[in-house]
Write a protein that binds this DNA or RNA. Structure first.
Lengths: 250, 250
DNA sequence: TTTGACAACCTGTATATACAAGTGTAGAAT
DNA sequence: ATTCTACACTTGTATATACAGGTTGTCAAA
């Protein structure tokens, strides 16, 4: 099953979890004002700074909106439908949607690295990499082709059970790898004969390709994933907050 | 022109701007350790908490990576190529790329709201909305079709000059609208006859659609934008940090 | 040589306090 | 009645302090 269980090791994550849950369940409705920072500090027997840390996280994740001089207000997360942004794995999304999902593992082996993958993983050509190829079947149709490549120095092997379930759960739960950040590129490319062979593509000529470069907490790049989605089933949702004052990253 | 000029009204944004600039210019190279929080506090004659606020922003935006017990390290922003995530307008991206860009304004008028747009802007059908339709020509080819819809109560009108340049600059600079957050949806759909007519689409049967719902600081939804990109020219880059401890938004 | 204890340094969390600045309201002065 | 002022309440910024806990190197004991 693997629902993400909120961990409350800190006071601020306790507050964050309380309010994110209440807002998402609709218990706190959109537009309503939540208690002021001072009130929350008193309610949780903590300091205002600690409350502010929780509120900042709520704000960043699209749960609330802060207005100076007035207070913090609940955003319409139903309508915002919800940030599937970030590093959400296929299994997490699937669990959320509650669909009938099946994973077909086509390959799970140690292979010499191709030229293309070696450039992406920043290693030499023909260096060995773990390659896992899987199709994702949703309601009877193979919609997504996931091609994962791992550095063997970090991931010695992928058990068959993990490949069929969730590799992320295995990496984080069993290997205790601490994944830190990733870069994601989305583009549309022409279908390959491999796509045709392994997916139910109908007559589509193109396919959405999501390339994911995953790094550990020590900044080491250890995984490259190419997730190929059938056009009609692809959707990406993002919540973005406009940086008002700071120099924009661009 | 409109480079985004970093504003240093606060100490922490001063530090943020200093370091983001130095990292992006390559002056600070990837992997190198930046001074510790205490050292930075001393260097900027401020407190550690203020430094931490700046470092948190740098971390969130993919400039640095913090490791407890060790320090903060510069990430490879060259290779990460850079977060075009967030609420970046076409003009901002175009300026960055330095390409030859032309904007063709097809329509800029007050029209009764269609059923589809009324649902997205949460207003009644046939209510008046400002509609702006523009094609974006890059190196001689019309690649992107931008269809913007504004609430007239917020945006009385769009001057022709603004439509040809940057509507965002007009909204923020002239009308002083304070844009706060947006939801973005990316999907792929079949081309319409309008797409065919207004863009140089070659033989593509599909088109990438980016729907943008833009809110003001008072949380009011005031703009809906449909940005339609030719398949082969579309790319979306995102930087995501994995939430390690808090309950995942899903 | 290896192991273990310790110190020095780092980031993470939490508290208390202060003032600046935006918002709204009640009440006084006009 | 209208305008203005003062006050209360809100979030934003900044400082000082304290301790927890991860990392690294040193030095002494085994």
């Amino acid at each position: 099953m693997s629902m993400v269980i909120p961990v409350n090791k800190n006071i601020y994550s306790h507050i964050y979890n309380d309010y994110s849950a209440r807002i998402q369940s609709g218990q706190l409705q959109a537009g309503k004002k939540i208690p002021s920072e001072s009130q929350l500090a008193a309610a949780y027997s903590t300091s205002r700074e600690t409350v502010r840390k929780a509120l900042q996280m709520l704000s960043e994740n699209g749960y609330i909106h802060k207005i100076k001089g007035k207070g913090s207000f609940v955003l319409d997360t139903q309508r915002l439908n919800f940030p599937v942004s970030g590093l959400i794995s296929f299994k997490e999304v699937a669990d959320q949607l509650g669909r009938t999902i099946r994973t077909i593992v086509y390959e799970n082996s140690l292979v010499p690295c191709s030229s293309s993958v070696s450039q992406r993983l920043l290693i030499r050509e023909n260096e060995p990499v773990w390659k896992v190829v899987r199709a994702r079947e949703i309601e009877g149709e193979k919609i997504i082709l996931d091609k994962d490549y791992f550095l063997p120095s970090v991931v010695p092997s992928i058990p068959a059970a993990a490949a069929e379930d969730s590799i992320y759960e295995y990496l984080e739960g069993k290997l205790h790898l601490r994944i830190s950040y990733a870069k994601k590129e989305i583009s549309v490319e022409e279908v390959t004969s491999e796509d045709r062979l392994l997916l139910d593509l109908h007559d589509y000529q193109h396919i959405v390709v999501v390339r994911n470069y995953v790094h550990l907490v020590d900044t080491q790049l250890f995984q490259y994933t190419e997730s190929r989605h059938r056009l009609d089933k692809f959707q990406f949702v993002d919540f973005a907050r406009r940086a008002q004052m700071e120099g924009n990253p661009l």
